[in-house]
Amino acid sequence: MAGRRVRLAGRGNLIVGAVLVGVVAAAALLSFAWLPTDPLKMDFVSQLKPPSGTYVLGTDHFGRDLFSRVLVGARSTLYVGFIAVGLALSVGGFLGAVAGFLGGVLDEVVMRLVDVAYAFPAILMALLLAAVYKPGTLTAMVASGSASVPIFARIARSSVLSLKERDYVEAGRALGVRSGRLLLRHILPGALGPLIVQASLSLAVAVLAEAALSFLGLGTPPDVPSWGNMLREAQGFMAMSPYPALVPGLAIVWTVLGWSLLGDGLRDLWDPRA
């Protein structure tokens, strides 16, 4: 009975997470095909309006439709998140896997570098990059991606360390399978589960990072609607209308919750001990 309840609870996270993320993905896709109004069109007779028939979620200080802007903002969120986490997953996964597989001095050096990377969280990395290059979408993606490299490197390394001692890997080695093939075809597939779980959890972090960076003016440029940008602009007009601040904030909470529930759900599914 208890076992069944645990399984159901795990599925609950998975299902709710998938639905929340699915809605965001659908909103982003929909925004390419259809939008209630032009998200950039200013309407100076309906500035800072509450939700109405014309503007379902109200308008901002330029009279722009909040609903259309939130839909388009979903694109930026997913785009930045996927690229950042993809970057972290490939760089971190590769470094960790090779370090764990080859061991020795290389392992020592890679793990030392990973330690240093821990000292540069996304915001700090973004400050550094913004000093060097013009702050924008690319620097935001690199910053939030590079901040997640260490965690992927550690997960890949520990998975590879435990898998490379398994009998089937030993057997492959005895049969003369080359190291690269052994790592790619026989070890890496086994390490994929934990990496995918982390990818989902890191997407939650990346959504928060993108929003924070855009809010600081270090992320998505102001002419492209993003949730962080919308909050940045709403800051000055909160006393007149709460909607420009409420709408994008709730969208962020929705999406972050979705990715983290999805990650938890996947972990419960694959590793019931956790």
Binding site: A212, Q235, V253, L257
Partner: peptide
């Protein structure tokens, strides 16, 4: 879980 999903800076605005 809900609390961890709320960005601190948005909570600040609220």
């Amino acid at each position: 879980q809900l609390g961890a999903a709320i960005p601190g800076f948005w909570l600040g605005l609220i």
